[in-house]
Design a binder for these strands. Structure first.
Lengths: 208, 208
DNA sequence: GTCTATAGTAGGATAGAC
DNA sequence: GTCTATCCTACTATAGAC
């Protein structure tokens, strides 16, 4: 990848961070990249295509950077801690809510929707791996669909990132509350047989 | 409110639903409203101001429509059911993800960010009331910050709405998983004294 | 209050020189 | 590969007729 192609991708991410999806244009991207506006079309054909490339690249590099950290996670609270770390680092680096912004843009363009779905799937795969490992022998795994749970975690994370953009204090409080909730689930796990028995009888009652 | 002013608001919501925030302009709104483009500026001064008015109006009416249903909720799973109902009805009516789209736009405009934060706060207030009522005497309330939890629930809901826009099946699966998780928490509540004791000792260990 | 017309600006995209 | 120049379209916003 030539220097300019990469700079255009970085510029795209910068604009996304500073002005959101509504601030995106070939001209704003080129300005942020220190490149000529025409190069967006020369290298990528269209703004949407550059947006898609930036989304792929940013997600792939973040997922790769966090794969080991996910592997090292041994509890739900640790998973949440890695999530918060990830979020804090994205804030610092300026990759914040790229996915959130593209999720919003996906409403307009099928092309963007596809790319964003693929990017999100990369995160879901990682989280699913972690959850599957963590929940072995847990009552949670007995009743909850792990792939579904991984999707819920990913979507919720993105909602929190968006929320953070408009109410930082509120988002912080939300994260604290989730952290406290994770303790609950861990306790549930530790209860082991008792919980499991209660759960089974309860499940019979709700009769799904 | 005159007929045209209202139609412009409805048109704004229609465009938001069909094309997302990136599809918003005075012209697209006017077309959807069956009105003249200049009337956007006559009645609202600017597109952003109309966007803000639409956000306020849509949220206020939805919150009012769901206030009674929230009041009737007696369990976490019922709360989730109301949430899913709300989501389904928004899908049908076309108010989907107005907040999500404006959350994304809030990155660009302080004006929009403020309005969106205020709208979200309306939902948070309702959810906080429900949670506070549901969690009386529950171990959850003993450790988790209820206002924080209400914010987490709201943000997660919005993340799921956005996710639904790009992967309907995945979002459905996520919601099912959350539903199953809610059973867990209810069981935890029913365990009562045992769970509470385990929780307290556990809390001492994590020593927050 | 609503319309037409229009000024002025920003954006997507391409042609062609270098 | 990169630049300038440019076309065309779409946008915001306002002026002024009705």
């Amino acid at each position: 990848m030539t220097d300019t192609k990469q700079r255009l991708i970085d510029g795209t991410l910068t604009v996304l961070r500073d002005h959101g999806i509504t601030g995106i244009s070939a001209r704003t991207i080129a300005a942020a990249a220190g490149a000529n506006q025409a190069l967006v079309f020369y290298h990528y054909g269209s703004v949407d295509e550059l947006l898609a490339a930036a989304c792929r690249e940013a997600t792939a590099s973040r997922v790769a950077a966090y794969a080991q950290r996910f592997d090292a996670v041994t509890s739900l609270r640790e998973l949440l801690a890695v999530g918060r770390e990830l979020h804090a680092e994205e804030l610092r680096q300026g990759n914040v809510s790229v996915l959130a912004q593209l999720l919003a843009a996906g409403q307009r363009s099928e092309r963007i929707a596809e790319t964003t779905a693929a990017a999100l799937r990369m995160w879901v795969v990682e989280i699913e791996k972690v959850l599957r490992r963590l929940l072995i022998g847990s009552p949670v795994a007995e009743i909850a669909d792990v792939p579904g749970l991984a999707r819920a975690v990913s979507a919720a994370f993105i909602g929190l990132e968006l929320y953070e953009g408009i109410d930082e204090a509120g988002a912080g409080r939300a994260l604290e509350a989730i952290d406290q909730l994770a303790v609950l689930i861990e306790v549930m796990d530790e209860l082991g047989p008792i919980a499991r028995r209660a759960l089974r009888s309860r499940l019979k009652r709700v009769a799904r």
